[in-house]
């Protein structure tokens, strides 16, 4: 299986490469349209700031390529946020795959610390009332988050986590999947999610 990881100016890309290698998959790190289109799976990972990331993707035409991919695509963390319509971070127009607006967490109580960082549980792992295939065999497990912006719960939500209020821990639409958490840093549960994605 050919797995491509989108190469762009976001941090933390290597951790997903390592995770795939641990599963016996040798991924290709690339920003080439041809390579991305010919892959069996595309992973769009990262950690970073939305407007810088979108500028980089636009300069390379990837803002056009990613939404038109037809194989299974998995966005991770900022990847999920960039797959939405717009982000409050830097007032950025994003890829528009998911019809959602990315918002900044606003603390309500003193205990509400930003970023939301650490292990939190994923609930209600389903999309349109049926189990999301990304979470086969999973529900209620803890996964690892680091983020200050979130996607509200919407019709494309595939898993919910509660921090300050419920938000989209994962999203799904057609061949596009995304997680706000980091499966590559989420121990065995995370590995199961990546395996589910590869076995879709």
């Amino acid at each position: 299986m050919k797995v491509a990881v989108v190469k762009y100016n976001a941090g933390n890309i290597f951790s997903v490469v390592h995770a795939l290698k641990r599963m016996g998959v040798e991924p290709l790190l690339t920003d080439s349209e041809v390579e991305l289109r010919s892959a069996d799976r595309v992973i769009f990972p990262g950690q970073g700031e939305a407007s810088n990331a979108m500028n980089y993707l636009r300069e390379r035409g990837l803002d056009r390529v990613i939404p038109s991919l037809t194989q299974p695509v998995l966005g991770i963390c900022i990847g999920q946020q960039l797959m939405c319509r717009h982000s409050e971070e830097g007032d950025t127009d994003c890829l528009g795959i998911f019809d959602a607006e990315v918002k900044r967490f606003q603390p309500v109580k003193h205990e509400d610390k930003i970023p939301h960082m650490g292990w939190n549980s994923i609930q209600n792992c389903q999309i349109q009332n049926s189990k999301s295939s990304l979470f086969k065999g999973l529900d209620g497990e803890f996964v690892y988050f680091v983020h200050s912006f979130y996607v509200p719960v919407c019709k494309e939500t595939a898993a919910v986590t509660n921090y300050i209020h419920p938000f989209s821990a994962a999203m799904q639409k057609d061949n596009f999947f995304a997680t706000q958490f980091h499966p590559e840093k989420s121990g065995e549960v995370g590995q199961q999610i990546l395996r589910n994605f590869l076995e879709l």
Binding site: F14, S15, A19, R22, Y144, K185, G187
Partner: peptide, 8 residues
């Protein structure tokens, strides 16, 4: 560690 361990 980064290559072999899957927690932060």
């Amino acid at each position: 560690v980064a290559a072999e361990i899957d927690i932060p």
